[in-house]
Nucleic acid binder design. Structure first.
Length: 357
DNA sequence: CGATTTTGACCTGCGC
DNA sequence: GCGCAGGTCAAAATCG
């Protein structure tokens, strides 16, 4: 089992009913899970407020303690269930990793069926972008683009390295080769998204402005084109498209390099805005910033020169976040879990109700 | 009313 | 040269 899971406060199912809430720092670790659990939080707070009041009678205290013990037992049960689920997930993840590794070894770079089309389009776009770059920025020899500091539930991140593995052209076409070399670095993110969520929004901490959408040939799902709107001169572009094979996977392709720091709004809360409207959910724009603290001293710029190993490490972190959110969503969507929770809480509320005596 | 999204038209590169 | 497909533009629509 993944030790990380058991260390996550928001995943330990430690509801702490009746106790001062350990509202600690898990916002930084598993914001999505915290957000999901927040659905039941108001009820908990209601209970807590009553519980923190001076206790009236000893029998009542005894009853509450008994109830607390019962809840604790239930909590332990749920924790065990979670451990089992996590173990199964770990096994599946191992299998998935093996499959990906095997696929990469055989395909030589194309580990995703959709990556063929992505790569194909990427090989076309630079030329058109080149003509633009001639007029816009005078040959920015900016460093290779960074994998953006993704703060969402990413499944996989691949730092494409526009210069690296895509330079396999041996047909001896100098012009083509030069074009390839001028190509901005491309990195891909594989993001797990709710299939019902029709919006092609990948919240990665940056502000994006959508400037186009296109249905591509080999994928019925439209591809959305985004531009970094935080800085007018930022050359970074992003393409987001659902995987043709798995509708729950969003493939985000980043091109270019941010020439600015990360916007102040952290992409921490990834409330699944699965309203399908895709309207007011500005692309990549976090709904609101929970902490008014100023932006960190431009971590993205620091990340720009990270090695691929770091990118992989970030991918691991993202996988964990993804797991956290997925589990939280699964739990909160489980009717039996909700029913049990509501039963326990309503019983407690009735017990503490002033109209009781 | 300004910012953002939508969407059809246009441009460009590539393969045949 | 032609057609196709991807990428971008820009006017209209929409939202806060």
């Amino acid at each position: 089992m993944d030790p990380w899971i058991s260390s996550q406060p928001s995943l330990s199912l430690d509801l702490c009913v009746g106790l001062p809430p350990p509202l600690s720092h898990h916002h930084h670790q598993a914001p999505a899970a915290a957000a999901a659990v927040a659905m039941v939080k108001p009820k908990l707070q209601l209970v807590e407020e009553n519980f923190l009041q001076p206790l009236k009678k000893d029998p009542e205290v005894a009853a509450l303690e008994a109830e607390l013990q019962r809840m604790s037992a239930e909590n332990r049960q749920l924790s065990e269930m979670l451990a089992t689920v996590a173990a199964k997930y770990d096994a599946l993840r191992g299998q998935f990793t093996d499959m990906v590794t095997a696929g990469a070894g055989a395909g030589g770079g194309g580990n995703n069926p959709s990556s063929a089309s992505e790569g194909g389009s990427a090989s076309v776009s630079p030329s058109s972008r080149k003509r633009k770059s001639e007029s816009l920025e005078g040959g920015s020899d900016s460093p290779p683009p960074p994998p953006p500091p993704a703060a969402q539930h990413h499944l996989h991140m691949i730092s494409g390295g526009g210069g690296g593995d895509q330079m396999e052209c041996t047909s001896g076409e100098p012009c083509k080769r030069i074009r390839e070399e001028c190509k901005p670095k491309i990195s891909k993110l594989y993001v797990h998204a709710d299939p019902s969520d029709l919006s092609l929004v990948v919240k990665d901490g940056y502000q994006w402005r959508k400037y186009g959408q296109k249905v591509t040939k080999d994928n019925p799902c439209p591809r959305a084109y985004f531009r970094c709107s935080f800085a007018p001169t930022c050359p970074v572009k992003k393409k987001v498209q659902r995987s043709a094979e798995d509708n729950t996977i969003l493939v985000a392709t980043y091109e270019g390099d941010h020439n600015h720091g990360q916007p102040p709004a952290p992409a921490q809360q990834q409330q699944p805005t699965s309203d399908g409207s895709g309207k007011s959910s500005a692309a990549g724009k976090p709904p609101h910033a929970p902490s008014p603290s100023p932006p960190a001293p431009t971590p993205p710029l620091a990340l720009h020169h990270q090695t691929e190993a770091v990118a992989v490490a970030a991918g691991e972190e993202l996988i964990r976040r993804n797991l956290a959110e997925h589990m939280a969503m699964t739990l909160t969507r489980d009717p039996s879990f909700k029913a049990a929770l509501v039963t326990a809480l309503s019983g407690r509320i009735l017990e503490l109700s002033p109209t009781k005596d």
